[in-house]
Simulated scan of single mutants.
Amino acid sequence: MLRGLSYDDRRLRDLPGEPLLATMVESAARCCGMGLLYEFWGAYEGRRDRTPKGVILQKGHALWASAFCPEAVPEMVDFLRWRQEGWMMLCPLLAERWQEETGETGLSLAVMALPAEVEFSLSKAEYRTHTATAVADCNRAVGEVSPAQYEAAVVNLHLAERRRVGHTVTLQVEGRAVSAAAVTDCGTRYGQISYVATLPEQEGRGLGRAVVYHCAGWLREKNLIPLVACEAHRESFYAELGFRNVSRVTIIAG
């Protein structure tokens, strides 16, 4: 059975299961009470069960769902089919069952982590932080953010910084952001790096590496493990930086 959870419920801390989804749920729980409307559900075996076997987060029309054991999958998928209005991010267990029942495969993303034993040094550059709008501008310039997504990206990046679960950085040439990255979610063990983009004419200079490592350093100062989620063609870039595959998530379009 599924029951609602309050954002300040301790069961929304130190979540097991897929690490990226755990991070996003934990980060959302930390940000509630600041005028943000999120809903949380826990999957349980029965009324007396107090330990969730899975969690679901809803923000607007989007859903994030992670099952911690196979027993939770059938009911969670039924709930998602009833609740879905927009896109969803699913853990491997739920994605497999969703595909079996609906035929939808979705977009698979590799989740990669930067192990603590991987050392790096920041290249000498003029890093500019608290540059949320410039990060969105750089991503729009390379097509990572569409014109329709731009306003939401700016708002989300600014909010993440204001809620102290995010960080933005750019490298600029003649006052224009040419490479950018951001931390968009911080949980209890991991933090997500995203919005990584470099203008085509500036590629090959190590700028993307620099902004990713800058965000990774910011996370390590908070004793968090850096995570990225990427499509197959980006895996080699992050692997060269020392990131290692730890799981996968699937995006189902609404």
Rank of each mutant, 00 (worst) to 15 (best):
R176V: 03
M24S: 02
V155T: 14
T105I: 12
L94C: 04
M76Q: 10
N156D: 15
L80Y: 12
E201H: 13
P200A: 05
P16G: 01
R189P: 08
K59L: 13
G4V: 02
E71A: 13
E100W: 11
H233I: 04
A177W: 01
S66V: 13
Q99D: 13
S66K: 13
A152I: 07
T105S: 15
T198R: 00
N245S: 13
A182D: 04
C32Q: 14
L227Q: 02
G204L: 07
S247L: 04
M112S: 01
E201A: 10
A22N: 11
F243H: 07
A229L: 08
P74H: 11
E161G: 04
V212E: 12
L57Y: 13
T131W: 01
G242P: 09
G208M: 02
R162Y: 08
R13N: 06
L109G: 09
V118W: 06
Q58D: 05
S146G: 03
L63F: 15
S236P: 00
R97H: 12
I193W: 10
M89V: 10
S146M: 03
G206W: 02
W218V: 00
A232N: 09
R162F: 08
E151L: 11
E100G: 06
G103H: 03
A95H: 09
W98T: 03
E231G: 09
A177L: 03
P74S: 10
N245Q: 15
A62G: 13
S146K: 02
G254Y: 12
E221Y: 05
A136F: 03
V183W: 01
T170H: 01
V246G: 08
V211R: 00
A148V: 04
L2W: 10
T102N: 09
H61Y: 13
S236C: 07
L5Y: 05
R50H: 08
E26K: 04
G206K: 00
L20I: 00
R244Q: 13
A67S: 15
T188L: 09
G46M: 06
R97P: 06
S66H: 11
S179G: 02
Y238I: 01
A29I: 10
V228G: 07
T131N: 00
C32V: 07
A160V: 10
D49T: 05
G42P: 12
L20C: 02
V118D: 03
E144I: 01
C186R: 07
F40G: 05
L37W: 08
G217T: 02
L224V: 05
S123E: 14
A152S: 12
Q202I: 00
R50P: 01
R10L: 10
T170I: 09
S146Y: 05
S236T: 07
F120A: 04
T129R: 07
A113L: 06
G208A: 02
L57P: 08
T131E: 12
D9I: 05
L227H: 04
G166S: 07
Q202R: 03
L15V: 01
M34V: 11
A216N: 08
E161N: 04
S236H: 11
L207R: 02
L90C: 14
R162C: 06
D78L: 05
M89N: 14
P19S: 11
Y44E: 14
K124M: 08
T133D: 11
L122S: 03
F243V: 10
V169N: 01
G103I: 02
V118Q: 13
L122Y: 10
V169S: 03
R209K: 14
V142I: 06
L159S: 05
P74K: 06
